[in-house]
Write a protein that binds this DNA or RNA. Structure first.
Lengths: 328, 328
DNA sequence: CTGAAAGCGCTTACAG
DNA sequence: CTGAAAGCGCTTACAG
């Protein structure tokens, strides 16, 4: 039989209300009484039922987290950062993915309605930004990990796409590169625009011009990274450096260059974005996104919101870091 | 104001009990009444409070999952498999990691005591098997994803380490290799013994003997894989194939061989175990562990246990699969 | 400083 | 077939 607050109260010769007060550190409890209650709690190993506390208080000390899929390279990092932060405040993390499409989303929505959690952490889910925004507008505390540069109308944590690209450009130029190509991500992503602008602006400032024909669109996959590289080479224009908008694309670039007999980095330098684990193994120079710390920051933002603080109107932006390896 | 069962009852002109019956599909409700109630539910968009239902029923339709750390290469796969399965039954997944050591574990323990979830899925946590076993003995439904071959005294899902190693051996022999080396994982892991036994047994059956000096212990990291390979080469004994007990080690083997000027696979074939994403990129031949499906199977086992079924006494064992790539 | 009572939003015997 | 009531295990005014 599970021990309840009633049993503790009886053993300590006080009312349930007093036990509750001790439990929640309320003031105005006689020191001796409190000590006695605490002793009983320790003796019987009492822990309040999360469900009962949740019902009575209307909050569950639980946060939901919605992520596209855990098999994406860095999702785990973000979630780990969030879970570490939540855990140290005693919060639980209810995990949802949209791995099974609209069915997943329906399940998620019903858990929202059931008030299964107090607040929501979300890695921007494709095509669902409006829905999330609606939840926020309905009063659910939401913080988004914004890896696409959407800058939504509610609290979010992003990274310095522009500055990261800027750093990549500066590095390549100082390494002596002069003829640049870019394999972008999907053109409608905010982060893609930021990375492209940052890169071109930096080069412009350094007096280097990029031929528009050497800017090709990819879709963040290795396959399309390779295809894009074939296109670049097909232009016949010379280039000695490629900036890919993420690491998976960059791997495709490296692969396609190798297949065409062009050496990396001797003939062509390649720089990626993200710093996923494979980047280290492939010796890829890249712009590191601090995914773990973005998860932590998002969790902290949400927690302080749940504790009553007003969330910042501006997105929290964490700095990228250029990681120089062999490829560029 | 949130709509409650009381409001639905009032609008439908019935008691809360009747609404509850309709909600839970109990028999013996007049068809017309049920239809009316359902109509009201749909009209007001009523969803029962998860907390209240949980308290009243004593179960939360929530499962806990304890994993070592999400940044480990395949943890995400296992969790994704589990979450997919749970989700389709409407269960929530509370995620816990032991990323922050004993502090994490204390938090987890208090959530256990608080009955925050109905059952537990666990990827074998180092040095905590006894604790998990104790939870199981205290009546918490537990299913373990056993990646270490521990075969615990409660329901678990494992993989065919022995047969996987066997397949690797057969493959290498049929590819013409004759002089074998092994870089094992930690010697006290059940899976390491199984992989070693399977490998040596298969070779023995094929009439190939392995020199014991060519069996070196690693620790599942890339660094130690490289160190182990240096040891192998230092013996001066010839070898033309290395079976590493996981992919990270195998990457270390490849690296060390390369540094020593030995070509893979021309001079030495290398086979790993796991099939983590990097294995594909590194063109590593490996024995694939079905992590995703192990997560699914574990979740299904736990769900059926929660629904009253008796769990199987024997571990559920899912088959490995040899993935042949360029390295061996 | 402390207790009796109501309430959180459901479910489930018990009657009828 | 349906409702009134008790109960799940807490918290929180309200009195004193």
């Amino acid at each position: 039989m599970r021990v309840t607050i009633a049993e503790v109260a009886q053993r300590a010769q006080v009312s349930k209300a007093t036990v509750s007060r001790v439990l929640n550190g309320k003031p105005d409890v006689d020191a001796a009484t409190a000590a006695r209650v605490r002793q009983v709690i320790a003796d019987v190993g009492y822990v309040p039922s999360a469900r009962a506390v949740g019902l009575a208080r209307g909050r569950a000390r639980t946060v939901g987290m919605l992520v596209p899929s855990l098999t994406w390279p860095w999702t785990g990092e973000v979630v780990q950062g969030a879970v570490d932060e939540l855990e140290s405040d005693g919060y639980g993390l209810l995990l949802y993915t949209v791995n099974r499409g609209s069915e997943s989303l329906a399940q998620f929505a019903s858990h929202v309605s059931a008030k299964a959690f107090d607040g929501l952490l979300v890695i921007e889910p494709p095509d669902t930004l409006n829905y999330i925004e609606a939840l926020h507008d309905q009063g659910l505390p939401v913080v988004m990990i914004d890896d696409r540069g959407s800058r939504p109308g509610f609290p979010s944590v992003g990274t310095t796409n522009r500055e990261g690209a800027w750093a990549a450009a500066r590095h390549l130029v100082s390494a002596g590169r002069r003829h640049f190509a870019v394999v972008t991500g999907p053109a409608d992503f905010g982060c893609v625009r930021e990375r492209l602008d940052g890169f071109l602006d930096a080069l412009g400032e350094l007096g280097v011009h990029v031929d528009p024909r050497l800017v090709v669109e990819g879709d963040f996959t290795t396959e399309r990274g390779a295809v894009a590289t074939d296109k670049l080479m097909a232009t016949g224009l010379p280039f000695d450096a490629v900036f890919a908008h993420n690491d998976l694309s960059a791997l495709g670039v490296v692969k396609a260059l190798g297949a065409a007999g062009r050496r990396v980095p001797d003939d062509v330098a390649v720089v990626g974005f993200d710093d996923i684990p494979i980047a280290g193994h492939a010796e890829l120079t890249t712009v590191r996104q601090p995914m773990r710390r973005m998860g932590e920051a998002a969790a902290r933002l949400l927690l302080s919101r749940l504790e009553g603080a007003t969330p910042p109107a501006e997105p929290v932006v964490l700095p990228t870091e250029l990681v120089v390896r062999r490829s560029g």
